[in-house]
């Protein structure tokens, strides 16, 4: 449990930094929308740029709020031994891990199959999109293969 507590302390610091960075992005987006600073994507007209800034701002707030909830949950658990044990059990439950591994594995297979099909079909209409999709699938598969090799050696 002591090791887990140390791990949570590190996680808390990383999450706090992430929240600060996202908060900075949110502030930049708002300032940019107000015209105080120039912070906009190079492509597209003013309307498109405004929409994109809005998306960045919304995404920053959404992800920041999610991380903040996690941060509060960790901080709360660290001050209460019972809550800490509950969190530890929840995070290390073998069935949950099995579900996660199975879900990720299936999702990866589905992504690769659909990606390949989409890449081929889209190729008849738009070469750029097709190459982008196929590149994503290739990189995803290569990362998967590297992870498989790593774990084959580990176990």
């Amino acid at each position: 449990m002591k090791e887990y507590k140390e791990k949570l302390k590190t996680t808390r610091v990383i999450l706090a930094i992430a929240v600060l960075i996202l908060f900075a992005f949110t502030v930049l987006s708002v300032l940019s929308e107000c015209g105080v600073i120039h912070f906009a994507p190079v492509a597209g007209d003013g309307h498109w740029q405004s929409r994109w800034r809005g998306f960045i701002c919304g995404a920053s707030v959404g992800i920041g709020a999610m991380i903040l909830v996690g941060l509060i949950r960790i901080s709360k658990a660290m001050g209460d031994e019972k809550e800490l044990k509950k969190l530890y059990v929840k995070e290390n439950d073998e069935r949950q891990r099995q579900i996660y591994i199975s879900a990720r594995s299936l999702a990866m297979q589905i992504f690769v199959i659909f990606g390949l099909v989409a890449g081929i079909v889209v190729g008849y209409f738009n070469v750029t999109v097709s190459i982008t999709v196929l590149a994503c699938v290739t990189i995803h598969s290569l990362i998967g293969l590297m992870c498989k090799l790593y774990y084959s050696r580990k176990y």
């Binding site: 059990v89 929840k90 290390n92 439950d93 073998e94 069935r95 949950q96």
Partner: peptide
């Protein structure tokens, strides 16, 4: 039982 063996109630059920 779940608390005693360090797992969740859902795992015991399953």
């Amino acid at each position: 039982l779940a608390e005693a063996v360090g797992t969740t109630r859902q795992t015991i059920t399953s």
